[in-house]
């Protein structure tokens, strides 16, 4: 009698364990599938960048003839110029945009002034307008200022950073989590608001500062619309996205598809390496600030 009583729960326990093992192996299978799906395009792009025999799109992945021809060909086009343009605008944008965003989000998180609520509501409403619409006029204004076409880089930077104050949500969410009592204690001790920011808040905000820099740096690499507008028709003012987009046009793709792959690899490497190094902060920023809004 007693034997039965002992084995029944044990059996159930064993059953539970096997069912969990089955469940876990199913999940492993799923995760492996997902990983393959997510990695296939990147593997393909790398493999095709080394293909020599044909320069157009083909139905197979592994090259029949390997070589660095496509990378060499890249440097005979305007690609280095586009790359420099993008890199410079990304670097400058990252610095200036971070300052602007942090100023804005810190203010909206910490100060209570009369116009605060109306200001935030106003920016919310502004954000509902399609930003692309403003491009038409910004292009004309920048053109009058001589910041388009060949001189597109400063114009582009200006456009990127000018309205970046509206993207304060994520970092404001982060600042909201730093206890206000810290500020107040310092204020009681006679620190000015500026000193509070410099000596107390900023040292605590490393993750969000890095997150902001990272996202601001990555933005210009992927921007197509604004860059296309501002560099309109002038190769030397283009960024990588605009320049390389043309390689996939109907009349060019047969000759430059593999070159696009090679360019894509060169563009992706620095951004990806940087991103993977700072991934921890990115995740913190996304999970900490993004949802609270």
């Amino acid at each position: 009698m007693s034997e039965k009583n002992v084995t029944a729960p044990m059996k159930r326990h064993m059953g539970l364990r096997t069912s969990r093992a089955i469940g876990n192996s199913l999940i492993y299978a799923l995760l492996i599938c997902i990983s393959i799906i997510w990695l296939v395009p990147f593997v393909c792009i790398v493999l095709q960048s080394f293909r020599v025999e044909l320069k157009g799109p083909v139905g197979y992945v592994i090259p029949k003839q390997w070589g660095f021809d496509n990378y060499v060909a890249l440097f005979q086009t305007d690609f280095p110029r586009w790359y420099t343009n993008t890199f410079i605008s990304a670097l400058v944008t990252a610095m200036l945009q971070t300052i602007i965003v942090l100023c804005m989000s810190y203010t909206l998180s910490r100060f209570r002034f009369k116009m605060r609520k109306p200001l935030m509501r106003f920016m919310l409403i502004l954000g509902m307008f399609p930003g692309m619409l403003t491009m038409i006029i910004l292009y004309r204004v920048l053109k009058d200022l001589g910041m388009t076409q060949a001189n597109a880089v400063p114009g582009l930077i200006l456009v990127y950073i000018a309205s970046s104050g509206m993207g304060y949500y994520v970092s404001k969410g982060f600042f909201d989590t730093i206890p206000k009592s810290l500020d107040e204690a310092a204020r009681v001790d006679g620190a000015t608001r500026f000193q509070v920011l410099k000596k107390i808040i900023l040292p605590l905000s490393k993750p969000i500062v890095i997150y902001t820099i990272l996202t601001a740096f990555m933005g210009p690499w992927g921007d197509y619309v604004f860059a296309q507008y501002i560099s309109f028709g002038t190769s030397s003012g283009m960024n990588v996205a605009v320049g390389m987009y043309r390689w996939l046009n109907k009349d060019q793709i047969a000759n430059s598809y593999t070159m696009f792959c090679a360019g894509g690899v060169l563009v992706a490497i620095p951004v990806t390496v940087l991103f993977l190094c700072l991934q921890k902060y990115y995740v913190e920023g996304v999970t900490g600030g993004a949802v609270k809004g």
């Binding site: 997902i34 792009i45 987009y245 894509g264 992706a268 951004v271 990806t272």
Partner: peptide
């Protein structure tokens, strides 16, 4: 990390490439 790779790589590369993968003569 595998999944996050898609965030890191600029969208114009991944999207343009994927669009060509699905093309008539694509992979």
């Amino acid at each position: 990390t595998v999944l996050v790779m898609t965030i890191a790589i600029p969208q114009f590369i991944s999207l343009l490439y994927v669009s060509k993968m699905f093309a008539k003569n694509g992979i």
